[in-house]
Write a protein that binds this DNA or RNA. Structure first.
Lengths: 217, 217
DNA sequence: ATGCGTATAATTGTATACATTAATCCAAAA
DNA sequence: TTTTGGATTAATGTATACAATTATACGCAT
């Protein structure tokens, strides 16, 4: 018998709020109070509180005396995030190559195709989502819980700033090529190559992001 | 006017449960149900639920159909934790050296003294706590939120296995010496040295832990 | 014996009332 | 004008009742 597993209200509220923060519906500095969210979302405080606490733990919001304030990330944060990813994300690709399954490979290939599709449409919003999905999926397919749990929150935090770094058309072309190379290494089961290509890929992304950040002030 | 800020029941419950899991009061596999905890702790389900959700996010427990099950960590987890720490913990020491304050230095020095005091008493339980405190404090004093948030959960997860690695007396002596060297580098403001000493320290700890784990089966 | 289905019990999910705490505002005094 | 005190308001913290779900036990048919 198939199990239904309706997602709980708390999960739905969390997903919605996380997405709204990432996409800028609630910009940095916005104050979220439980009561306002009760009105807006039409559910009771209980699931809302649970969602807020999870967002708090991910450092997307923080208590501020009066309600929860939506946090931004500083240049220092971004620097640290990319430095950590530069050191760790290669491990994810390494184990993804080691533990890959046919199903996982198919999933990953689908991402590769979508990324080229959205690029041909110049759809930056979906490009951002797909880029994130690519890196999240590799973490997941690595089958290494600790690595996944360490990296995924960092991916979440950079999402808001990813779109800006995608306005550079040349970087987009390079990104797609780098993803493709990483995919090929994983598909070939060459863990060491996947690892070093990934580290280099993050390094490139970091340089591009920080440069953009400096130029935009 | 001084602010009081009594910690909430939810915080207290979280701290207690986290500590009980870390110290083995609730061993791996133990099932925690909200109702049992209500009886044991004498508070309502609301703060208990909040605490459980936070423990879940730290991967110390997981939902299991019937209640929440206390998770252990596998050898793979331990390997990943120490590999990640090996790559990142140096950054924490680096920034701790850069951003150090007199007060912070005093705090850190106090830890150094306590560690030698407890060693002279052969008090392994406190040694474990102090070791953890040392690394947590450096993360905190680095003033780099992302680095702190990335490392602290990893420290929590290894606590349970730290005591075992402290049964090696020679390792304890080395550990104290390594901590002292890291402290001196930070106090001297030599960020690069603090970073490399820390990386080496974690490498040593990793080797010792994995070896112990193999020997004990 | 074994598998199936239903009744029952146990557990979590949600809403809400009440308690407590913290922020705000305004009036009065320095 | 600034500050201070307290009343008021608004927010979160906590407990609890009720709903929905899931596990379990048991009887029945095969």
């Amino acid at each position: 018998m198939r199990e239904f597993h309706t997602t709980s209200l708390a999960d739905q509220v969390f997903d919605k709020l996380e997405n709204d923060i990432i996409t800028g519906v609630y910009p940095k500095g916005e104050i979220l109070t439980e009561l306002k969210l009760v009105e807006q979302l039409g559910v009771s405080r209980t699931p809302i509180r649970e969602a807020l606490r999870r967002l708090e733990q991910e450092r997307l919001i923080a208590e501020s005396g009066k309600g929860s304030v939506v946090l931004g990330i500083t240049e220092e944060d971004l620097e640290d995030i990319m430095n950590i990813r530069e050191h760790i994300e290669g491990l994810a690709s390494y184990y993804a190559a080691v533990n890959m399954t046919p199903d996982g490979l198919k999933e990953l290939e689908h991402i590769m195709d979508l990324q080229e599709f959205y690029f041909s449409k110049h759809d930056l919003e979906h490009m951002r989502q797909i880029d994130d999905k690519f890196h999240d999926l590799i973490c997941q397919l690595s089958k290494r819980t600790v690595i996944n749990d360490t990296l995924v929150p960092l991916h979440r935090k950079t999402q808001r700033y990813r779109k800006k770094s995608m306005e550079n058309d040349q970087r987009l072309v390079n990104m797609i090529a780098e993803h493709r190379n990483i995919f090929n290494a994983i598909a070939a089961g060459d863990a060491a190559l996947a690892e070093s290509l990934t580290a280099q890929h993050i390094r490139n992304a970091k340089l591009n992001m920080l440069e953009r950040l400096k130029n935009n002030g």
